[in-house]
Design a protein around this nucleic acid. Structure first.
Lengths: 233, 233
DNA sequence: CGGACAGTTGAGGCCTATCAATGGTGGTGG
DNA sequence: CCACCACCATTGATAGGCCTCAACTGTCCG
């Protein structure tokens, strides 16, 4: 595993509030596994595809992407990881994808062996980790429906709503997308050009406003009308 | 949850060998949760989408599909479940997809609450269930790459190799696909017509032979050459 | 100021979806 | 036992959505 070179201080696991509503920290007392703070700069690889899965991470700040590459260069982004998200826990022997920093990131790193031991001792912690994995599975399955059956405009609408829900809006309605168009394209199974065109289309409709990486949703109804096509009932 | 009406006998959990190399039965002694045998006929729904997740199932024989529907009728098949596969374990509060019988199936049904209790008592069992969930996650992620970035011919090649690996070949090289073309199409994010055309193309190439639902791979190299595009290295 | 790179927009083509028709097969009822 | 029907599989013709290629713009940074 390729770890960012500036691994720094060692400290007990901090209290951390997960954006997904679950906290890895809950249930871990001062006797729990210790975290190593890891930093990575933009586009740096934190975990290599096929690397032995020795560590597990929590995102403290910043954004990462999980990436799979094909021989001929085609790329797929599995998911974006934001503050509070956990990754590396669901690996078996090896990571089956790479994790790269989309922005500069701060992570807490845990030895999986330590967490495994802790899991066996703390039933509540085990339950939470299991729930985390199940949530991940649910999210990935929803993405499968998107990739298999949705049109480009539906994918974009879905993506914008997802990000609006996960990212902090700074008081106003503006959200700052941390990732580039290419990342969005590889996440949605589209090309950069198609992503641009769809955004332009929504902009001309007045549904959204775009300024570089900043986006604001002006007409949430319209977006949801497109996105709702993907939900039963 | 809509359970097949012919729920029958009650019996202690049987020894069962999973096709994925893991057995839910392992680690469960005679004191483990009890299984109810459930049967469902072709196309019968075993679990409804959004139903409360009360039960967990192991496939004893037959084949099922997990299905998600969109308002306008578009359908997505998440995965095919074969003998030894477990489903319902990874649900949180509710199942986020339906499970339908592709062929007549026999299942063993467990109360999730019972399994949860057993999980807390038996660390080895818990580890196995966790590994099962992780394997499922890995499989679903691979499918994401397929849906997001592979061409129709690559998807078909990948599918045939996957099924050849999972299904019993009857001594000869012939495998009997349990599912219809429409199921394959919804699984691969294609249309029925495209699936047919790709199979025809492979047949004309001499790569495979097709007789209805029976398929045999005549030139494995060719298939792998197409499929390998999806794997790194 | 210039080069690199991300984003945007345009033109054209290809792959796959859509629509339509035919062939094959299994089940059912006369 | 066979005719009929429903359904699935297959094949063809056409259209459309998204990709590919290309040019241009804007921005950041050396």
């Amino acid at each position: 595993m390729h770890i960012a070179p500036r691994t720094t201080d060692l400290r007990p696991m901090p209290a951390l509030c997960s954006s997904s509503g679950l906290s890895l920290a809950e249930g871990l007392g001062p006797l729990g596994p210790r975290a190593v703070v890891v930093r990575a700069c933009k586009d740096e690889e934190v975990v290599s595809q096929d690397a032995r899965a020795e560590y597990c991470f929590i995102v403290v700040s910043g954004c990462l992407r999980t990436v799979r590459l094909m021989e001929d260069g085609r790329r797929h982004v599995g998911e974006f990881l934001l503050s509070g998200d956990v990754f590396g826990w669901e690996a078996l022997d090896r990571h089956d994808f790479a994790a790269e920093a989309v922005t500069p990131v701060v992570l807490h790193r845990y030895r999986r062996a330590d967490l495994d031991r802790h899991t066996e001792r703390d039933g509540e912690f085990a339950r939470q980790m299991r729930a985390l994995t199940c949530q991940r599975l649910r999210a990935v399955r929803e993405q499968m429906l998107l990739l298999g059956r949705m049109t480009a405009s539906e994918r974009i609408a879905h993506f914008l709503l997802e990000m609006a829900g996960r990212l902090e809006s700074d008081g106003g309605a503006w959200i700052e997308l941390p990732m580039a168009r290419a990342d969005i394209a590889d996440y949605l199974g589209l090309t950069v050009e198609t992503v641009c065109r769809q955004l332009t289309h929504l902009r001309h409709d007045g549904t959204i406003a775009v300024q570089g990486m900043k986006v604001t949703i002006r007409d949430r109804r319209s977006l949801e009308a497109v996105d709702r096509a993907g939900v039963l009932h």
